[in-house]
Write a protein that binds this DNA or RNA. Structure first.
Lengths: 146, 146
DNA sequence: ATTATACTTTACGTTTACGTAAACGTCAAC
DNA sequence: GTTGACGTTTACGTAAACGTAAAGTATAAT
């Protein structure tokens, strides 16, 4: 396998902190903060942080977790789960339990979201009816909604 | 329609703050805090708060919003949307836009959650396999993982 | 040599969402 | 008449997740 076969656009092997910050739409401060909390651990070249593809993947997971409303602490646990270098059977079992727990939380959240979505959809169509029917006189009249 | 026909168990008409707190698993401090932020507005009997069924419904929405990771500010906006007493066409249109915006956010979140769920499910089954197969050796057992 | 650019650490500031104590009112029970 | 359960307001405290200077380092370009 040629090691340098994929070092152009998407096959990058290492990234700077600002590259990742821009790619993911966060500040470099945020990324350093995550390191402070033990969520990523990039290599160093002197003092400068060098992020591997794996680090980049972790960042992706972190930010998705954040979008889902998890705390950084939870996310740290989940990340530790995804890479079970802690080999003992006890650790694995613990990890498994945490995963299942997390899964249940997510399923609950999905249900919540589905409820909220249908309620919102109902609300929206009601609003549209309202606007369609009673829209005869008004100054700030703004109709086309699509 | 007999007005008192439903005043027993589930047909309650008013609630105290601790009743609601216990029902929803929060502290009364939390509920008062929500009032401070304008999310609920219970009646008063003297100084004591009296919560109607409608208030109770609002609380339910608030807490679901919280589970979904929304800020109280966002939740307040959403609540204001659900009750469009603001009659002008401009207000309604604004409300409609906000609703649709919110709907998109929720749909994105649902997609995120679905991703996270399947990844977690994969992770769980892998962990289970690992536990089932490699469970022969003892405590300090550390296997190199892919 | 200096300017520019990107990176670093240290550290105090800020917002959100409550917790927690202090100090008091009210009503029924003992 | 005081104990206890439940309610109230006021107000300081706190943890999480960064923002935001402040001040220095490193490298490349001018």
């Amino acid at each position: 396998m040629n090691a340098r076969a994929e070092i152009d656009k998407e096959g990058r092997v290492s990234f700077s902190i600002t590259e990742l910050a821009e790619e993911f739409g966060v500040t470099s401060r945020t990324i350093r903060f995550y390191e402070d909390k033990g969520l990523v651990n990039p290599a160093r070249e002197g003092t400068t942080r060098i992020y591997s593809r794996k680090d980049r993947g972790r960042l992706k997971i972190i930010l998705r977790g954040r979008r889902l409303g998890f705390s950084l602490q939870d996310i740290k646990k989940m990340l530790d789960m995804y890479s079970p270098e802690s080999g003992s059977t006890g650790q694995l079992t613990f990890t498994l339990n945490k995963c299942e727990e997390q899964l249940e939380k997510l399923i609950t959240q999905r249900a919540d979201i589905n409820e909220a979505i249908s309620e919102l959809e109902d609300g929206i169509s009601q609003l549209k009816e309202h606007l369609a029917s009673g829209d005869l006189a008004a100054d700030g009249c703004r109709k086309t909604i699509a």
